[in-house]
Write a protein that binds this DNA or RNA. Structure first.
Lengths: 132, 132
DNA sequence: AGTCATTTTATGCACGCTCATTTAATGCGT
DNA sequence: ACGCATTAAATGAGCGTGCATAAAATGACT
């Protein structure tokens, strides 16, 4: 019988398959309802949420792509394209950064903030429904 | 102050973002290591695992697509294509069902079983590393 | 037997994602 | 000032996924 590594692996598989279940069910429901009711994909909503700066509450928050990337589970290229979609929809602007012309500052437009605030209750309702 | 629904929503958002983190980190690592060490995508591994009948332990298990679909978080079409890839790789066979010619029975080939058994430790190691 | 809804699987298509590469700007070392 | 690695972001290519549909077989109802 094994003696080492006692706390790990009792049933990691069960834990993983539970995580898979929760993740798939919840994200599918989010994707579906956000799309149907507010015309937003889940990634798009998450970008709006990050830009809304839910935590720090700064309404005129300017964020660089790189910072945003670090906060999200999305590759640099996927993020770039997501922002492009949001920009086309008029929900986000890419402002130039004066000190580093490579970078750009992302900002929510008023329409973007409003869309996010409207979608928020839907998002939260789905979470409550799926995560006890 | 609110009185109703006290147990829900205390911090569903925090729980969800933790789920996102665990899911993305773990599945990326699984995808990466399974691909590098055994030439398998995560979905492919999961199909092999389901066919290996880990739970019921029947080595010559024949499973219909529909049954498999119910056990997995994959659409019918994605599953069909995943099985096609596994079939091309010689890891799975699609046998005809005598009583219902629409259906087909899926079975692991010996190579498929061996591939799964070789990959299993990698899978478990990643889970242990990421899930406590 | 004949029609029609249903079920099982495969396939066309569009979309979002990742990876690799490109373009442009920055900063460091000399 | 001059090269050169580094960094920020955009873009091309390829892949897996889901949705909608197609194709084929089955079952039920008359």
């Amino acid at each position: 019988m094994q003696v080492m590594e006692p706390p790990t692996e009792p049933d990691v598989c069960a834990k993983w398959s539970e995580t898979l279940r929760v993740y798939h069910d919840t994200s599918a429901a989010l994707e579906c309802e956000l799309q149907a009711r507010h015309g937003l994909g889940l990634s798009e909503f998450e970008v709006l949420q990050a830009l809304a700066g839910q935590c720090c509450g700064d309404p005129g928050r300017k964020v660089r792509m790189k910072e945003l990337e670090a906060e999200m589970y999305l590759s640099q290229s996927a993020l770039s394209r997501t922002v492009t979609r949001l920009e086309r929809a008029g929900l986000v602007t890419r402002d130039e950064c004066e000190y580093d012309r490579r970078a750009n500052f992302l900002m929510l437009t008023p329409a973007g903030r409003e869309r996010w605030e409207t979608a928020r209750p839907t998002h939260k309702a789905v979470l409550i429904r799926h995560l006890d």
